[in-house]
Design a protein around this nucleic acid. Structure first.
Lengths: 133, 133
DNA sequence: CTGGATCCCCCTCGATACTG
DNA sequence: CAGTATCGAGGGGGATCCAG
């Protein structure tokens, strides 16, 4: 667009473009959650319906108990999933997405759509610059 | 892979909901990039226009040379930013967003919008469960 | 069955110093 | 000005054992 802005470019752009810098660290927290190795997988799996601990662990390929517990706890603290423990003789705990969790899942789904839409270009650039696929 | 027969609850949901599991690791790579501490900041700053190395470093608060170099290199390899080196007496290198980078920025902007829209609920849940804000 | 506790490896990132 | 090289601390995450 306008190229005349470059000399004193820092003047008009502020610390981080359109990000209010007050919400910056909060946005980063959510971004961390999104970029987390397991969070989105758990959310994606739970999007199909509630699951109990063991089933959840089976559905997420390669997750350890530790990571599943930690991930689920974080998601619960953020209000993205609910944890329902039934006081039965064999303990039963069910995890389910909250409406908030579902809305985040929708957002990430759109991101995934973007990836599916552009992964060709990205792969091309990566191979062109000598990066492993 | 004979077992297209997923017994029990997993029947209808597949390995990871709507994610083809073949693109799974690739999606994760992009998710990592998005969730990366610096990538989105760099993209956000560059969204306002091209910048050279030092200016870019000044615009991103708290980034080290190392991280700036690594981040920018990754983004370049993914075809999200361009690196233009001018063979001048004082070396000058300009970084700019590619159209692909701009489109990713748009996606993340929508994510940020979501955060701005729901951070109230998340904070509420966090404080309710005794998590530090 | 659900998860807490512990050990430990390894990778990431930050700070510093140096080169072209 | 624009990076590269090196080192060192920190934490993420896997494996395992144990408890409620």
């Amino acid at each position: 667009m306008d190229t005349a802005d470059r000399p004193d470019a820092a003047a008009g752009r502020g610390p981080c473009a359109a990000i209010p810098a007050e919400q910056m660290d909060f946005v980063r927290q959510i971004l961390d959650r999104v970029g987390d190795k397991w969070s989105m997988l758990v959310i994606a799996v739970l999007a199909a319906g509630p699951l109990r601990y063991t089933d959840l662990r089976r559905e997420v390929p390669g997750i350890s108990q530790r990571m599943l517990t930690l991930t689920v706890r974080q998601l619960q603290q953020d209000g993205l999933v609910t944890r329902t423990a039934y006081a039965e003789v064999p303990p039963r705990v069910e995890y389910a997405l909250t409406p908030l969790g579902r809305s985040l899942h929708q957002i990430v789904t759109s991101l995934i759509t973007w990836v599916a839409d552009h992964h060709g270009q990205i792969r091309e650039h990566r191979t062109r610059t000598g990066t492993a696929p």
